[in-house]
């Protein structure tokens, strides 16, 4: 139960300063942010913030209450469980020399991800999945030499009934 990972999803007013209210609340109260993802929704006045935090149950309760107290947070949900779909995307630039180019492509194939940029000595691989899949891929690519990596952090949506 201690320090479980939670995916918190909120709909917020799409206006300047809202992200800093959310982020400031976490830093000011000593809560932790593992990842944070923000973008506009279908309604241009509303953005969705998806935030991953680690906290024990009483702290999580405080985090949710404190976030709800922010005037610009309209709706908040914990989307950690199986009743939600969680995904993360990463772009991984991996060293690709003659001796391992084929191996990398095989891995890309197995993981059903994509090569989105090719160079003489590198591939950029685009991968989408849950955290487990991303970590598995990263671990496999590490020995080849990961030059750089960009991850979006988790986004999540609650499954619709039926």
């Amino acid at each position: 139960m201690m320090n479980e990972k939670h995916v918190i999803s909120m709909l917020v007013d799409n206006e300047p300063g809202v992200l800093s209210r959310v982020a400031g609340l976490f830093s000011g109260r000593g809560y932790n942010i593992e990842s944070l993802c923000v973008a506009e929704t279908i309604d241009p006045d509303v953005s969705r913030i998806t935030l991953v935090t680690r906290a024990d149950p009483p702290i999580l309760e405080q985090i949710e209450k404190q976030l709800n107290k922010l005037i610009n947070v309209n709706k908040l949900r914990d989307l950690s469980g199986p009743e939600s779909v969680q995904r993360e995307m990463a772009m991984i630039c991996v060293q690709a020399r003659a001796n391992n180019r084929a191996e990398i492509l095989r891995i890309v194939d197995i993981f059903r991800c994509k090569v989105v940029d090719v160079g003489i000595e590198h591939y950029i691989i685009e991968v989408t999945g849950d955290e487990g899949k991303l970590m598995a891929l990263i671990n496999l690519l590490k020995p080849m030499g990961i030059k750089k990596i960009a991850r979006t952090g988790v986004i999540a949506l609650k499954r619709e009934p039926g």
Partner: peptide, 14 residues
């Protein structure tokens, strides 16, 4: 001042 006062106001506006 909106940035400075953010953690000590109930809400603030520019």
């Amino acid at each position: 001042i909106v940035g400075i006062s953010r953690p000590c106001t109930k809400h603030n506006y520019l």
